[in-house]
Each structure stands twice: as C-alpha cells, then as structure tokens.
C-alpha cells in the first residue's frame, strides 16, 4: 500500500471499528487485528496517538467508565455526530476509490 493510500486510511479504520459501539484501546487493536487477519497488526504505539487525534478533531469522544471486570477505569471511545458523518463520507470515498482502482487493475 502506497503512503498516500495509507495516509488517512487509519482514520477510516478506527472510525469504522468504533461505529459498532463504544470501544477501548485494547479492544480496538484486537478487533483490527482479527477482522483483517493480522494485516493491521499495529501496536499501541500508533493507536493511542491516533485515537487522541480523532478526539481532538471531535470525530470521536472518549469517556472513562468502570471496567466490566472490576479493574481500573477504561477509556471508551464512541463516535460523535461529526464522526458518523465523516465515516459515511470516507466510506463513500473509499468505495469509489476501490471501484476505480479495481476497474483499472482488473480485480474480479
């Protein structure tokens, strides 16, 4: 994947995972890993800054909530209205992009 293609796609991946419901960091990593069969096996070193970036741009919202297993509070991220709108846009762009590329490179 060329850098321009990857650049910005992390945002789409994270928004898509969080869209399914509030998630905390470790959950997001696990889900990204499992749903892509290990392709996006990125480490926490790149995840947390990305989450905070999205939160700063108000696409997601982070809130501490008690752990369901009784441990320390976890920070759950959920989509904001702006995030949902952005996700829809990004999905559209991505679909358009992949269709265009596939029609060129001949993927069936």
């Amino acid at each position: 994947m060329a850098p321009p293609l990857l650049s910005g796609s992390l945002e789409l991946i994270l928004l898509a995972i969080i869209a399914a419901g509030p998630r905390y960091g470790l959950e997001i990593i696990t889900e990204a890993n499992e749903r892509t069969n290990g392709y996006f096996a990125f480490k926490e070193g790149s995840l947390y800054p990305a989450l905070h970036r999205l939160e700063k741009t108000r696409l997601i919202k982070g809130e501490f909530a008690p752990s369901d297993r009784g441990g320390p509070r976890r920070r759950y991220y959920s989509l904001t209205a702006l995030g949902r709108k952005r996700l829809a846009e990004k999905r559209g762009e991505w679909a358009e992009f992949t269709r265009a590329v596939e029609s060129l490179i001949g993927v069936e």
Binding site: G25, L26, E44, Y48, F64, S67
Partner: peptide, 16 residues
C-alpha cells in the same frame, strides 16, 4: 492525566 490513566488501564487489562 487522561493518557496516563488510559495507559495504566491498558497495562492492567492486558496483564490480567
């Protein structure tokens, strides 16, 4: 404070 608490929780969850 937020980042520290978040990372601490990450440690706890993963270690557990």
């Amino acid at each position: 404070g937020v980042v520290r608490e978040e990372l601490e929780a990450h440690f706890e969850s993963r270690v557990a």
